[in-house]
């Protein structure tokens, strides 16, 4: 079953970032290897004449065209609702999309989202016609509030951005999945290994957004493929239904008529 984001059906459940790769060429190869159709990018102050980011932008446009994909601009670096709303509007004009990965950072140490400013920004952007994908902490009530505002997609963190620590609070994430069964849940930030992504998908998450774990791998292209496989496996496992864990051992091999067997 495809992933649906604001009505758009996507073949891949991996959303991928475009930063931190060793080179633009490796970025392009890795994104293509991932199979992702959603690529995140950002805006930054730059000299418009002869700007150094032109090649990256050109590559991203080529990838999006080749993958029949979508741009997902972010509001990285914003620390208030006002900043985020302004940056979202600038992104909409430049990238011609209503999608916005909403980031409002509240603490510089762990880049933790500011829940108050995030809610304010989400409300303003939704009223202005944006399709908001908020990056948030794994707080159930915050996720509920964002969903109630009209965010069809919610993106709680696994752990702080760029740490690679994986799923810090599996219980919180499982609870969000349980309590928001109709929301599209994307696990965003902190994923370090393909197994982290697989665990999220086994929980019933709808997708995974990551960047550093692929871009900072020794071989980003192979790692992108590894993540694609892990996410597919996790999704299939969730659909197939995991067995219930049990407290005591149960033999896999039938014990009836086992030679030398004696019941204690």
């Amino acid at each position: 079953m495809p992933l649906t984001i604001y009505g758009e059906k996507l073949a891949s459940r991996l959303l991928i970032g475009s930063a931190l790769y060793p080179s633009p060429e490796i970025m392009k190869k890795a994104i293509l290897a991932s199979g992702s159709q959603v690529i995140t990018l950002s805006l930054k102050r730059q000299n418009p004449v002869g700007n150094s980011g032109a090649q990256i932008w050109q590559y991203i446009q080529e990838i999006v065209a080749q993958m029949n994909g979508f741009l997902l601009p972010n509001t990285a670096g914003c620390k208030s609702a006002k900043e985020a709303v302004t940056l979202a509007k600038m992104s909409r004009e430049l990238f011609q999309t209503d999608w916005i990965k909403l980031e409002v950072i509240g603490d510089d140490y762990n880049l933790q989202p500011d829940p108050i400013e995030l809610l304010q920004a989400a409300e303003q952007l939704i009223s202005d016609g944006f399709k908001v994908l908020p990056y948030c902490t794994d707080d159930l009530v915050l996720c509920q509030r964002l969903y109630d505002l009209g965010c069809q997609v919610i993106m709680p963190w696994a752990s702080p951005i760029g740490t690679g620590k994986g799923l810090m609070n599996p219980y919180n994430l499982e609870t969000i999945r349980l309590r928001l069964p109709d929301a599209t849940l994307i696990l965003d930030a902190g994923i370090g290994k393909p197994s982290d992504a697989c665990i999220a998908m086994e929980m019933g998450f709808d997708g995974v957004l990551l960047n550093s774990a692929i871009a900072l791998a020794d071989n980003p292209v192979v790692m992108a493929s590894a993540f694609a496989g892990a996410i597919k496996s996790g999704e299939q496992a969730y659909v197939a239904g995991l067995m219930t864990t049990r407290q005591t051992a149960h033999p896999s091999t039938p014990t009836l008529d086992t030679p030398f067997w004696h019941q204690v």
Binding site: G17, S18, A19, L20, Y21, M27, T40, L41, S42, L43, K44, R45, Q46, P48, N51, G53, I56, W57, I60, P73, N74, A76, K82, E83, T86, L87, K89, M90, E93, L94, F95, I161, L210, N211, S212
Partner: peptide
């Protein structure tokens, strides 16, 4: 700090010490 659309460039005045931010695409996560 306020977005100005392209169709507003010719009609929006700038005053002394105003601040313009010109932003271009860059890679992001």
């Amino acid at each position: 700090g306020n977005f100005i659309g392209k169709d507003e460039y010719a009609s929006t005045p700038v005053r002394p010490n105003d601040s313009l931010d010109i932003l271009l695409p860059i890679q992001g996560g």
